[in-house]
Write a protein that binds this DNA or RNA. Structure first.
Length: 274
DNA sequence: GAATACCTGAGC
DNA sequence: GCTCAGGTATTC
């Protein structure tokens, strides 16, 4: 799943079901997904309650009442499901039960690119899952955005995908916000005016907010913590629409590869500097 | 930067 | 059977 709007939807749907509850059992079926070890996570979270459920970029952070943070990254296909019964599905790698006997947390991840981490303190979080992560993309102030993006060489799309620059944007929302802003994915930020970068900031915020409101994009297997898919995929203007007509101008949407990721854009609407 | 690697599944 | 897929880390 997982770009910022999807992860934020998981956060919002899981938080009410988890706050104040105390993990009592941790079962790990695939040890490599748990850092540093399943034993460390189990010992870390059992016996203290979840006091806060936060998100930074695509990373979920469950703060424990005593100390420490239980971090969850969904990778490409990770799902957190809160349910009374084990979902009837393959690839459930972690199950956490609670001392009240209520709904359990199930972590499912077919491609195994996600992970869980036990971070005993903020330093472990900063040096581990949060290492090198820039400010969260949602609500990033314009000045901060401009400061971090303007003047950079390289390709604009690669910069948007770089979690060190800002955290949370992935392939879908990079393509969608570039189209809305009328900017070509291959242009270098240093060749853009302040007005163009300001427009990009605006459209990125708007795209993230709309996606969030529609429950995220369910392209392959994304569902929230209650198993519900999002609907923003129906509002995609370019993502995975290569060969189809642009809704704005009717031109054929192109698909190219940038930073190893498939990239979709309208050659007419997004031709700044090209 | 680009290529590759980590995995499984869907779609053609 | 092949290609592609929301992510990230590591290589040259």
């Amino acid at each position: 799943m997982p770009e910022l709007p999807e992860v934020e939807n998981v956060r919002r749907t899981m938080a009410p079901d988890l706050l104040g509850r105390t993990p009592s059992t941790v079962r790990v079926g695939l040890a490599k997904l748990v850092r540093p070890t399943p034993q460390a996570l189990s010992a870390g979270i059992r016996g203290q309650s979840i006091s806060q459920v936060d998100r930074h970029g695509k990373l979920l952070m469950l703060r424990m009442s005593g100390h420490g943070t239980w971090a969850i990254h969904l990778g490409m296909t990770g799902q957190v499901i809160i349910a009374d019964r084990r979902p009837d599905a393959k690839h459930i790698h972690v199950t956490v039960g609670f001392d009240d006997g209520g709904p359990r947390l199930y972590y499912r991840d077919p491609r195994q690119f996600g992970f869980m981490a036990w971070c005993p303190d903020q330093a472990a979080l900063d040096a581990g899952p949060l290492a090198n992560m820039g400010p969260d993309a949602l609500g990033i102030p314009l000045e901060v955005f401009l400061e971090r993006v303007s003047g950079k060489g390289g390709k604009l799309k690669s910069v948007l995908l770089d979690q060190r620059v800002l955290a949370g944007v992935g392939n879908i929302y990079a393509d969608e916000s570039l189209h809305r802003a009328g900017l070509h994915p291959l242009v270098a930020p240093k060749d853009l005016s302040q007005a163009q970068l300001t427009a990009l900031h605006h459209h990125l915020q708007e795209t993230l907010a709309e996606a969030l409101a529609k429950g995220g994009s369910s392209i392959s297997n994304f569902v929230d913590a209650h198993g519900r898919p999002g609907t923003f995929q129906h509002a995609h203007r370019v993502y995975q629409r290569g060969g189809q007509a642009c809704n704005e101008c009717g031109c054929e949407i192109e698909r190219i590869v940038v930073a190893g990721r498939s990239t979709h854009f309208c050659p007419h609407c997004q031709k700044e500097h090209f």
